[in-house]
Design a protein around this nucleic acid. Structure first.
Length: 929
RNA sequence: GGGUGUUUAGCUCAGUUGGGAGAGCGACGGCCUUACAAGCCGUAGGUCGCAGGUUCGACCCCUGCAACACCCACCA
């Protein structure tokens, strides 16, 4: 992309828009070249979703690695794909229908799913365009959807094989039931939260004249779920509990229901807790279910799928909601004199992660994956180190879950998703194959057998689990499977380790015999600046696109307050928004946002997202822009022929470039995206711009300097900048592309894009300690003068004379050599060397090593201010000196510490002492004035 | 109840095998110096959560405690 940057100021929107389309149309994102394969799996976003902070963070890291590896010459694939997101998508469309006043049942299954497909067509483009706006270099040509034809084939094949291997079964089990969505969900989809409730004590009258030890004619049970008592089928006590042993085998009458239920003994009961008597409701509690199994208790299901009470309870309760039934039961028990004490009680309430409805354990027929046999090899793969987690401690999280894994409920009573490929005949026999024809063929059934297909669908994560191989053409044997499986790095948040990562490992190992990926990089979750989870309900969410492209305050308020699940929050959200963003949010651009995410990606902790960081990094982009502008306007006539003969400052910045490349490569190899960003920032701003560009000015602008010398500087300005842009490209693709096109042209490089250039090689930039030392010395002297200026309040525009004295051998030559830079960067004139025995005029002194840097007072300097500055400096030195002397006078230290450490400390003490002494003498002189 | 992580400058966070406490933002002071005021120069902030231990030496290793965060778990 060609654009004239010499007169323009930095405007992210104008350079970023359009560039992505050019890249994509030029097919730069597709795998290319003969290098080794490198592949990253994208966690497929919901097809009907919109980009959120998690995506932006996640994709920044993935794209940084992908672009880096592509530049390293790898045959790189980052494949695009989206997820059908069963429950989430169905809920969304159902909500739309609700606004139209119809339900999915009014439409019927086929019309409804057609409607979802249509919605997917309409809205699927949103997330794609947002991902493009992030600059993510995904291979769109291989875009997959978890319900496209080939993918569906993979899903059906997996289901059938697992069924045939007896690893999938159908059974009646107590499952987590979401009464609002009216479907089963898996253990992982249940979120437990502590909520305030009550503990009720009920009296169940003993039968046959039995009494307790203290003479009561009833047993007292405690419960947090009064309404479930209507389904009780026993009361349990601990077998060794002396208080109740004599009652075991007897019975009580269940009030309200007026049934006799047995008193049983079971180890499950905790004698210490409550009264030591537990009501047992096998059909509505996971523990009670187990107890019921052990004692052959009947199961009485008292709930309809929507959690209203059914006909298995006394008629007056039938049809009531859980909440109403609870109240009625408590009231009626009280009226009957069966209610004991009631007290507030904190309890864990299970809620559906999608619906937020309270989950009900319910006895239903569901499909399960027998997971243990799949888990074992998956555990082993991580134990052996074939798969590695970064950071390492997540392996323990993985192990602890995998070793205690429970069978996986995969059927959902929904319409949107992969319908389960199982058919039933009139006798309830089960047949599994991809479609009905294949069922008949496989099981030898003719048309006389009537088959009905199971109406349920598979949960979304069942199909996502196949992502590593289903996207590459499995069950066909494709070249892609060969090249890109296993993939290299999986980058994801810790919230989906169980949902997705573990299941991919199990499924991929089982069906391909290969691991799905070598490294799992786990990043933190994105929170707001206060560390709160971002959520629509709280109204503290930020849409990445809003600070990439900017948004007005009114638009932001509108966005945050529409479609709220709790509309009453709107005023509060509006107020907070107007306070936080009085001017709306400016457009910071994608590069700044990506750079920020990288900088925040320290290992293993959540990130608090702060827009101030984005602003700072936008400024960094601006810095790069202007530096390039400077370089371009000062290198117009550069001559690139001949062998480079870099000067000392050139050699210094080249050596720094060498170090930069080594540092960033190490950072990426160890997944330290924060260090990667930090090194680039540090080098570009504080070495290249702050120092090197300033060093070049006196040379470039001095008419007495010969053109050959200028040319070397110009050449280095360009080559270092060109390398820097390539180093930074993985994290800030847009601005580097634009700047690079001009810089590379100046260097005679003809190439269409930076993204297919090689990543810089450290060996092409000489490591040069002999150039670094004098330049660091020069920086020290300049800083010393600036310090005197700052502290003594000498105007920058005031040119001052400079005196130098003492110092190391060679300092004198250095000073002469770099006089022009010293003069310009510190605005000094008449640099004068004094012999060691010469007595300097009254002056302000600063020490650089042993070198005395002096600015004559001569009416320039306030004596009191100078005394204060010296005192401060001396105090600092003396504090250091004291600490070191103490160390050195410790015999143990001198004897036991390594000799080189001791020598170093001794040398340090000598230096400090000399400097302190010089400054102290100086203070006396100034004081005497 | 079990587990993991965090605790360093006003804020957000680095600190690689134990050997002189750092950055960004913010604050303060000074500058329109011909790339950039989205900038430049300078300055000030920290008994590194607490208490012990190991060591010549601890932000770093060990033990205990505290606070916060998150994950897992069936306590009626």
């Amino acid at each position: 992309m060609k654009s004239d940057i010499s007169n323009a100021s930095f405007d992210p929107g104008s350079i970023e828009t359009g560039l992505y389309t050019e890249w994509e149309q030029s097919d730069y994102f597709a795998p290319r070249g003969n290098g080794a394969g490198y592949c990253i799996l994208i966690p497929p976003p919901n097809v009907t979703g919109t980009l959120h902070m998690g995506h932006a963070f996640n994709q920044t890291l993935m794209d940084t690695l992908i672009r880096y590896q592509r530049m390293k010459g790898k045959h790189t694939l980052w494949q695009m794909g989206t997820d059908h997101a069963g429950i989430a998508t169905q809920m969304l469309v159902e909500r739309q229908l609700q606004q139209e006043g119809v339900s999915r049942h009014d439409l019927g299954r086929e019309v409804f799913t057609d409607r979802v497909w249509r919605w997917r067509e309409e809205s699927g483009g949103v997330i794609s365009s947002q991902i493009r706006r992030m600059g993510s270099s995904l291979d769109w040509s291989r875009d997959r959807f978890t319900m496209d034809e080939g993918y569906a084939e993979a899903v059906l094949t997996v289901f059938e094989r697992l069924f045939d291997e007896n690893l999938i079964y159908r059974g009646q089990r107590l499952v987590n039931w979401d009464p609002e969505l009216r479907t089963a969900i898996s253990d992982l989809e249940v979120e437990n939260s502590e909520e305030q409730g009550h503990m009720w004590h009920f009296h169940y009258p003993l039968n046959d004249g039995l009494t307790t030890q203290d003479g009561a004619s009833y047993l007292t049970v405690a419960t947090t779920r009064p309404e479930t008592m209507l389904g009780d089928t026993a009361v349990a006590v601990h077998p060794d509990d002396e208080r109740y042993q004599h009652l075991v085998g007897g019975s009580v009458t269940l009030p309200l229901a007026d049934r006799a239920i047995p008193v049983i003994a079971d180890e499950y009961v905790d004698r210490e807790f409550g009264t030591g008597c537990v009501k047992i409701t096998p059909a509505h509690d996971f523990n009670d279910y187990e107890v019921g199994q052990r004692h052959n208790l009947p199961l009485i299901n008292i709930f309809e799928p929507d959690a209203t009470l059914n006909e298995n309870v006394p008629g007056k309760y039938t049809g009531l909601s859980r909440e109403d039934a609870r109240k009625a039961v408590v009231d009626d028990l009280e009226a009957d004199g069966c209610l004991g004490e009631t007290k507030p009680h904190k309890l864990m309430v299970p809620r559906g992660d999608r619906s937020d409805a309270i989950i009900e354990p319910l006895l239903t027929d569901q499909w399960f994956v027998r997971i243990k046999p799949l888990a074992e090899p998956a555990i082993e793969a991580v134990e052996k180190g074939d798969i590695e987690f970064v950071p390492k401690q997540y392996e323990n999280v993985y192990f602890s879950w995998m070793r205690d894994i429970q069978d996986w409920c995969i059927s959902r009573q929904q319409w949107w998703g992969h319908q389960i490929p199982a058919w039933y005949d009139g006798d309830g026999n089960i047949y599994v194959a991809a479609d009905e024809d294949r069922v008949r063929e496989k099981y030898g059934l003719d048309e006389s057998t009537e088959l009905v297909r199971d109406p349920d669908v598979l949960e979304t994560w069942f199909s996502s689990a196949l992502w590593p191989f289903a996207t590459l053409g499995w069950p066909e044997e494709t070249p892609e499977l060969d090249k890109f499986l296993p993939s290299d790095t999986l980058i994801t948040g810790h919230d989906i380790i169980f949902f997705w990562v573990a299941r991919m490992i199990m499924m991929t190992l089982h069906f391909t015999g290969k691991i799905p990926f070598r490294t799992v990089y786990i990043h933190g979750l994105v929170r707001d600046a206060e560390g709160q989870k971002m959520s629509k309900t709280k109204g503290n969410g930020l849409d990445p696109l809003d600070f990439i492209d900017g948004i007005s305050l009114d638009d932001l308020v509108a966005k945050r307050t529409t479609n709220l699940t709790q509309p009453q929050m709107a005023p509060r959200i509006e107020k907070a928004t107007r306070k936080d963003f009085p001017e709306g949010i400016p457009a910071y651009g994608t590069d700044a946002v990506r750079f920020t995410f990288c900088a925040l990606a320290t290992t293993g902790r959540d990130v608090k997202f702060d827009l101030n960081r984005v602003e700072g990094n936008r400024n960094f982009c601006n810095k790069l822009w202007n530096a390039t502008k400077f370089v371009l306007t000062n290198t117009e006539n550069v001559d690139l022929t001949g062998v480079p003969a870099p000067s000392l400052v050139d050699r210094w910045i080249i050596s720094k470039t060498h170090q930069l490349i080594k540092d960033v490569e190490f950072a990426l190899a160890t997944y330290r995206f924060d260090i990667f960003a930090q090194k680039i920032y540090e080098f570009a701003w504080h070495e290249y711009c702050d120092w090197y560009l300033e060093f070049t000015k006196p040379i470039l602008w001095d008419e007495s300097v010969d053109s050959a010398q200028k040319n070397e500087i110009q050449r280095t300005l360009l080559t270092v900048l060109e390398a820097l842009l390539r180093v930074a490209h993985p994290v800030m693709p847009f601005i580097t592309e634009v700047l690079w096109s001009s810089v590379s042209e100046r260097l005679g490089i003809s190439a269409e894009t930076i993204m297919l250039q090689e990543f810089p090689d450290a060996r092409e930039f000489a490591h040069d300690p002999e150039a670094e030392a004098p330049i660091e010395w020069l920086k020290g002297v300049i800083s010393a003068i600036r310090n005197i200026r700052g502290e003594a309040d000498i105007k920058p525009s005031q040119t001052i004379p400079l005196l130098l004295q003492a110092g190391e051998t060679g300092d004198r030559d250095r000073a002469r050599e770099m006089e022009s830079m010293l003069a310009r960067l510190a605005n000094v004139e008449n640099i004068q060397w004094l012999d060691d025995n010469e007595d300097p005029p009254p002056n302000a002194l600063s020490m650089v090593g042993n070198l005395k840097v002096m600015v004559p007072l001569a009416g320039l300097i306030d004596v009191d201010a100078e005394l204060a500055r010296l005192t401060k400096e001396i105090d600092k030195l003396n504090a250091d000196l004291e600490r070191i002397s103490k160390k050195l006078s410790n015999e143990n230290f001198v004897q036991k510490a390594p000799a080189d450490v001791v020598d170093k400390e001794r040398q340090k003490a000598l230096d400090l002492e000399a400097r302190s002494q010089a400054l102290t003498e100086q203070r006396d002189k100034v004081a005497a004035l």
